[in-house]
Simulated assay, not measured.
Amino acid sequence: MPRILLADDHGLYRKGLQAALLRAFSDATLEAAESLEAALACIERTPNFDLLIIDLHLPGRLSGEDLLRLSKSHGGMRVAVLSASESRTDILECLACGVHGYMSKGETEDEIISGINYILSGKIYVTPRLISADKKSPPLSIGRNIELIKFQMSNLTPRQNDVLVLLSIGKSNREIAQELKISEATVKIHTAAVMRVLGAKNRAVAALMAQELLDRSR
């Protein structure tokens, strides 16, 4: 039974998404907040949420520091940004702050629910059409540069590849350490090396790149 917190200051949109979430997750516990302060208070009061869905443009606008705090400081809670902005800069900045997904408010109900399911399953999600929407800019992740990413991944050691595959399915450092029978400190070293080789700003971006490559190879 997922526990979901929705933070959005647009009442009509928030109520519509609440109704959609209840239709899709009939057994879910769902709470809503109208501001960042209200969302943080709700998390403090009930700290075991599985997913926070948060509007990027809440009053006062979320800072990178806010996103980092939300994505790193609340146990296993996953964080998904839902925004009317389709700016490549906004998407990359959110991923760099460790969020687990970025969804456009321009998507249909079914597409948003599909993205939420993907994030709850432990993966990193970005609305697909946003990955290469700007034809004048490099793609967000693999996009048209799949051969380059394949080449970069060929420079990883077998153990680094093992770590990357587990990152791509949302495993935590502790889970990776247990599965590979190595220490968490060693996992962190391998993860840093993976991000450096791939040119990824953080583990979320590296995981997204691996997911797309694995999906394309199936």
Rank of each mutant, 00 (worst) to 15 (best):
S85R: 03
R129D: 13
H10K: 04
L22C: 09
L36I: 02
E86Q: 07
D8R: 01
K135E: 15
L30V: 13
A7W: 03
I169C: 10
R174Y: 02
G170E: 07
G106N: 08
E179C: 11
G11C: 10
A39T: 10
Y102S: 09
I176Y: 01
S172R: 08
A206G: 08
F49S: 08
M153Y: 08
H57V: 07
S154G: 09
S73D: 13
R69C: 04
P138D: 12
S137N: 13
I189E: 12
D90V: 09
K201L: 11
T89C: 02
L70F: 06
P158V: 04
E86C: 05
R144H: 13
G76T: 12
N202M: 04
I146E: 15
T29S: 14
Y13I: 14
A39I: 00
A39F: 02
V205E: 15
V79F: 00
S83K: 06
E93S: 15
V163T: 12
L40F: 08
T89P: 00
L214Q: 14
E111M: 02
L40V: 13
G11R: 14
L12P: 13
T46D: 12
K105P: 09
I43K: 02
I131S: 01
L30S: 05
L148V: 15
I124L: 02
V165A: 11
I124H: 00
L21G: 00
I182G: 09
R196V: 05
A204G: 10
R129S: 15
G16N: 09
R144K: 14
E86F: 01
Y13A: 10
P138H: 12
N117W: 10
T191V: 10
G60V: 04
N48W: 06
D66G: 03
C97S: 14
S35N: 06
Q178A: 09
T127I: 03
S137K: 14
M1G: 13
E184F: 07
R144N: 09
L56R: 04
G75Q: 04
S217H: 15
S121Q: 05
I189K: 13
L70I: 03
D215Y: 13
S87F: 07
L58Q: 02
I119D: 02
H57Y: 15
T127M: 06
A28R: 00
L208R: 09
N202G: 14
E37Q: 15
R203E: 15
P128Q: 07
G115A: 02
Y125I: 09
L140V: 10
G11Q: 14
M103S: 08
K201Y: 11
G76M: 07
A177M: 04
L51R: 03
V165N: 12
R88H: 13
L52P: 09
N173L: 01
A206C: 08
A200G: 08
D110Q: 12
S121W: 05
V126F: 00
H57L: 11
R61M: 13
S104E: 06
A39S: 10
N145P: 06
R3A: 12
E109G: 05
L67N: 02
A41P: 03
C42G: 10
A32E: 15
D162K: 01
E31F: 08
D8N: 07
